[in-house]
Structures are given as C-alpha cells and as structure tokens.
C-alpha cells in the first residue's frame, strides 16, 4: 500500500481539505509511513470471518412514528455563519 501524490490529491479533494502543493510530498511520506504500519493487517488470515461493524450484536431499535420536534430555527441559526430569511447561505451552487 503506497499512496502516490496524485492519489493524495484526489483523496484531499474528496475530503474537501485544501492541500497546498508544498505539503503534498511531506504529507504523502507521512501517510505512507503510517500505512506501512497498517500494512501488517493484510497478512492476517481472515477467511470465513464475518466483518464486525458494531461493538454490540443487536438489532436496530425502531422509533414510533410521532412528531416530537418543535421549531428551534432561531436558536440553531444564532450559531450559523451566514443566514437570511431562515435559510443557510452558501456560495452559489452550480448545478
């Protein structure tokens, strides 16, 4: 497992983290150092083992279909960077 600079750029774009070009090489090296450590996973035999996504082996609990929430827009939008007329504002989205 080795992450190339091109892959790192793609990953950073997917993660929406701005990565100045000067940081690409060192970041790549550091991540590859960590991945080198993680690499030992691949040698472990896991045939027939079911993946474990949760620490508890239970079923999803279901909620009754009842409206329990009230309008808290004022409170929630008091901490928002940019709002108008009850809407959150973001830079123009191009579809």
């Amino acid at each position: 497992m080795s992450l190339s600079p091109a892959e790192l750029i793609r990953i950073a774009q997917l993660a929406r983290i701005d990565l100045p070009s000067a940081e690409i090489e060192p970041t790549c090296a550091q991540l590859n150092h960590i991945f080198g450590f993680i690499e030992q996973l691949r040698a472990a035999p896991t045939d027939g083992i079911a993946p474990m996504s949760h620490a508890v082996e239970l079923s999803q609990r279901l909620r009754d279909d009842v409206v329990t929430e009230t309008n808290q827009r004022e409170k929630f939008q008091a901490i928002a960077p940019d709002t108008e007329g009850g809407l959150y504002l973001v830079p123009k989205v191009m579809e």
Binding site: M1, I38, L41, P51, S53
Partner: peptide, 27 residues
C-alpha cells in the same frame, strides 16, 4: 491526517483490502 487516512481506506479499490479486513480482525 486521520481524515485523509479514513477517506483513503474507504475509497474505491481499498475498501475490501483495508476497511473490511480491519472489521474482520476486529471480530
């Protein structure tokens, strides 16, 4: 760093080799 690592191990082509593998080892 961890966001980039996590994005990478979940991304196309690496999921089985890393994420799924790690979940099996978890068991």
């Amino acid at each position: 760093r961890r966001i980039l690592m996590g994005t990478y191990v979940l991304s196309h082509g690496y999921y089985d080799a890393f994420y799924l593998k790690a979940q099996k080892i978890r068991r």
